[in-house]
Computed example of a mutant assay.
Amino acid sequence: MRIGTLGNGLMAEALARHWAREHEVMIGGRDPGRASELAGRIGSQAGTLQEATIFGDVLLLALPAEVAVDAVRGLEIPPGRILIDCTNAIDQQDFTLAEPAMAERIARAVPHVHVVKAFNLAADSVWKRPPDGLGVPLCGDDPAAVTRVGQLISDLGCTPVPAGGLGRGKLLEATAALAIGIWVTGGDVRRMFPPLDAAFGSVRPGQPEAPDREEEIGAGPAEAAEVGPRRRRVGVVEAHENAGCADEAEQHHHSGDQAAPAQPS
């Protein structure tokens, strides 16, 4: 895969260093000297931003959020390129979003490009040496583009977590703002979420399941799973017993209809 970075800062270095081991990489920068310096450190090529857009099948947008939209709008990006947006427009004073839906703004600026939101939930220091299996959510509208970015996530030893279309990218940006605000106060966002097997209540969202009997309402999924088959087994037994009683009653009924044998005189 050929990858071009739009930017030569810390995020570009952290991610491109991994990818340069398996892919062809060009560091594209607004400062040719800094781009060449970074390329020399990681063993890749260097060029301008425009040269990187021509070089890469996949482009990493690693510019400051405040200049990202204007930068991509000013480039002649070939149609069909995949553009990874890792930006976060966060107000550093109160850790809220200074600009909501950055990924969608970028997509509107370059509608002929497949934008995928990814890598925005961790700082460059994490991407230098990410924990094995770290989940990396990504959002995009083009399935092929999402798959290719997922491969680049896997190349880091991480786990791609498809999180829906690009319209959900704003949720990743809001999550980043929330997490950063908690981290800077010493909080641990990993403690905010339960494990997957405890993530849902009695009914999974979008998958309603009616209980077998009214008295089962309120039972947890494990109890309902056990009670349901037991109820069905009891119902089958009751049906057989009722059928047996009916047969016996019918036999008595027919025997009563028959004439009694004549008594000898």
Rank of each mutant, 00 (worst) to 15 (best):
A62E: 09
G165K: 08
V237Y: 01
D85M: 15
I42V: 05
S255W: 14
G43N: 07
I82V: 14
V234M: 01
P208W: 14
R129P: 00
E209A: 15
D155F: 06
A199K: 10
G47L: 08
G256S: 11
G28T: 01
D188S: 04
V237F: 04
I182L: 10
L178Y: 00
P162Y: 10
A210E: 13
H112N: 12
V113Q: 04
G165V: 09
D257A: 15
A174K: 07
I54R: 13
A62C: 14
A62R: 13
A46K: 02
D197P: 13
A176Q: 01
G80I: 08
E215H: 10
G201S: 06
G157L: 03
V110M: 11
P64M: 12
P130V: 06
G220Q: 10
V146K: 04
D197R: 15
A243T: 00
R17H: 11
S265C: 14
V189F: 12
D91P: 03
A122I: 00
L59F: 10
E51H: 09
P79Q: 09
M11G: 07
A71M: 14
V203D: 11
L63G: 07
T175C: 00
P160Y: 07
H253C: 11
D188T: 00
I77R: 11
I82Y: 06
W127C: 01
G218A: 12
G133Y: 03
F193H: 09
E215Q: 12
A225H: 12
H112K: 12
G135N: 10
P64Q: 13
R204S: 09
R81Y: 02
S202C: 02
D132S: 12
T185M: 04
G135V: 06
N120F: 07
G80R: 10
A123F: 03
G157F: 04
I90Y: 01
A222D: 07
I42C: 09
V113G: 03
G140S: 06
S265Q: 15
Q50I: 12
E37A: 13
F95T: 00
P195D: 15
R190E: 08
I77S: 13
A163R: 09
T185N: 05
E22V: 01
P131Y: 09
I77D: 12
L152Y: 08
G9T: 05
V25M: 06
D124E: 11
